[in-house]
Design a protein around this nucleic acid. Structure first.
Lengths: 221, 221
DNA sequence: CCTCGGGGTGAATCATGGTTCATCGGTTTG
DNA sequence: CAAACCGATGAACCATGATTCACCCCGAGG
């Protein structure tokens, strides 16, 4: 009778695959995308370098899995925050604040996943992540505009600019250093979110209570 | 008597150094930072690979020279446009529009010099360029705010966000494709500039004539 | 128990791209 | 014009890091 994988073996394999991706993710969060190399990943996952290739055809696919994992998590958080808001405009505001807060909380990882220098092949993969984010924001902008809560505008232009401003302002290499002062960090998020909303055509977001204090209860993960 | 370089030799050497940097710059403009490699540069400059090392101790220094050249050019253009404006606020607006217009005109190069993935060592160099840009904008923002033309705000937060929004909105990988439609490109610049100014606290830039049609006569190079 | 086959191993291999250096050829000097 | 020397050359070298593969090891099936 031919060899059949035991149920427990199947579980072990799946768990190991998962642990490889987790190892990669944690390394990315510490040392950036450049530090995501096969040998360190294998070491952290307590396996040999060659074993990685029993689970992924190549580094590209591993990175793809890594980004997919992060993407899922981030989009879910974004949607949870937005959908809990009472209307399209506050949903947009909540998405902005949530994105900013989470990005800042995992600054290194956010930078690695969105803006950090990598080589071309990997950039292509990462683009899909950014694309998802941008589309999420674009959809929220369009909905708000359709409801007359924002001036009509080109969301395909505004959404990338919005993401660019948030990333560059909070986690980019030139952003001010907020480490060690949570209050300052929170204030920066508020200020940026207000500026972003002004840019989108909401001059009085604060007065209208659109930008609430972070962290939201539902931002935690 | 020891060997002394002839005047003509000195000129030839200087010209060659210059031509190496130019070759590197043109390659960056075509293929991005990743394509800036010693062998192709040497080929384009019509010299051997080893010769590059007679002019630069290493690739890092060559890249530094490349970026310095671009930085000089860009900052000069920015300042020329801004200084020709009639006041601090219109100077800021002019700087924004000029930056956007130039970045879009040399989209590939702008991306390479500001946002494109590269490895860590090079990123450090490139940061200085972005830093210069951000500082230029920050100074303009502060001046305008000091004159009561903008609400008081943290320019060290606003300036990076501004640059991020412009870059991501116009030249980033997710920006809409403007090639082949100059009108659309121009409209995008206008819209982005207006949004940026709204974000900074100028709700009616268009009505106040702050964002004039590009290209400015003085934007040309 | 034995043996079979798949998972695991990690040293070896390959690919890429920066850097070096022994050597060549044209200039400068006396 | 010959000697001395500098700048140019480009093949060889080196470093990094992904990928492979011949060889183990262990548990399932008989």
């Amino acid at each position: 009778m031919p060899y059949r994988r035991t149920e427990s073996v199947v579980r072990r394999l799946a768990a190991r695959k998962e642990s490889i991706v987790s190892a990669a993710l944690s390394i990315a969060g510490e040392g950036g995308i450049g530090a995501v190399q096969i040998a360190p990943i294998a070491a952290r996952a307590d396996i040999a370098a060659g074993t990685v290739y029993r689970y992924f055809p190549g580094k590209t696919e591993l990175l793809t899995a890594l980004i997919a994992m992060a993407e899922e998590r981030e989009l879910a958080a974004l949607r949870r925050a937005a959908d809990a808001a009472p209307g399209p405009l506050s949903a947009l505001a909540a998405a902005i604040v949530t994105f900013a807060a989470r990005a800042q909380q995992h600054r290194r990882l956010a930078y690695a996943l969105i803006a950090e220098p990598v080589d071309a092949g990997i950039e292509a993969i990462r683009c899909r992540f950014r694309q998802s984010l941008v589309e999420e924001f674009a959809a929220r902008i369009e909905t708000a505009a359709a409801n007359g809560l924002l001036p009509q505008q080109d969301a395909t232009l505004a959404a990338p600019a919005l993401v660019g401003a948030l990333v560059e302002g909070l986690v980019g290499p030139l952003a001010p250093d907020f480490s060690g002062d949570a209050g300052k960090a929170r204030a920066a998020i508020q200020e940026l979110a207000l500026a972003a909303l002004r840019g989108l055509g909401v001059p009085d977001a604060r007065a209208r209570g659109l930008v609430v204090q972070t962290p939201f209860p539902w931002v935690k993960e």
